[in-house]
Amino acid sequence: MSETLHTQKTTSYPWLAYAIKRLISGVIAIWFIATATFFGMHLIPGDPLSSEKKMSPQIRKNLEARYGLDKPLLTQYGIFLKNIAKGDFGISFTQENRRVNDIIREHFPISALLGVLALIFATLGGIFLGAFAATHKNQLSDHVIMLMVILVVSVPGFVFAALSQLGIMKINDAFNTDFPIAGFSSLSHLVVPSIVLGLGTLAYLTRLMRSSLLDIESADYIRTAKAKGLSNAQIFAKHKLRNALLPVVTVLGPAVAGITTGGFVVEMIFAIPGLGKYFVEAVQQLDYTVIMGTAVFYGGFLVLTVILVDILYGWVDPRIQVVK
């Protein structure tokens, strides 16, 4: 046979090489985030301590020494980077004696739990609704789902959060029930917030899943599968679903980012003591170390998520591995 194989495997572990390459670029991205945050914070007119009222020069000096603000900017930058590499984000300006690491350690798990719940709700719901709409194309249920999707996409997340809170309150009033409205003391407090948080992503994924299934509907390999004599259920499960999920996997990175930042607002409205709420508060109170610490932490988290999703994609789609 004159046909030749076109695959070129440059290394014996293309997957590993790819992962390492992505990780290195991720570290650079985190460094950039840290640097941008650091210089951004230090460019602000005034300095971190100017907001404190009536401060005697002595106290001011002590505070500057405490936060290292008396050193030259580049030295501070060096110390900042070194501390980040060690995983030390410093001490809060406004909450005396609280280490940023402790704030993250205490509050991030709550945010993460909320986010994971929202992500699960959004992906499972989106895949299911999208598949349902695609298989009922142009029927009433499809139109209803797509109408809901376009409405949800057009309403800001904080409006849903506020409305759902109002809704729970009305329900509690009307039926004398006691659904949690705000705060976080049990898992049930997170049910409504995670639904609200996942709603936008759910709508986006529904739309994506539907269009990707409809694209596949007319693919040649589906015709082949039909010609093979597979039943519709077999074709759906073995040929359509996996290929339709590929685009869904690619947007998981942005979806996590969206849910993370959306969480800021949801945590604020539902008074959930997650890291997002603290981040927003720190921003409002200009608590520099907390802003820098959480920003770098969030940045690192999101960058790593995107890399993880890319690696996951390489695992799901066999075609990716060979692309350089």
């Binding site: 040649d220 390999y221 082949t224 093979k228 290929n243 799901v316 066999p318 075609r319």
Partner: peptide, 20 residues
């Protein structure tokens, strides 16, 4: 289909499932 009558198509590249 596939048992008594089977069929092959014009473009083999797109006629096979890319992820299987």
């Amino acid at each position: 289909r596939g048992k008594q009558i089977s069929m092959i198509f014009q473009d083999p590249m797109s006629s096979l499932n890319p992820t299987m």
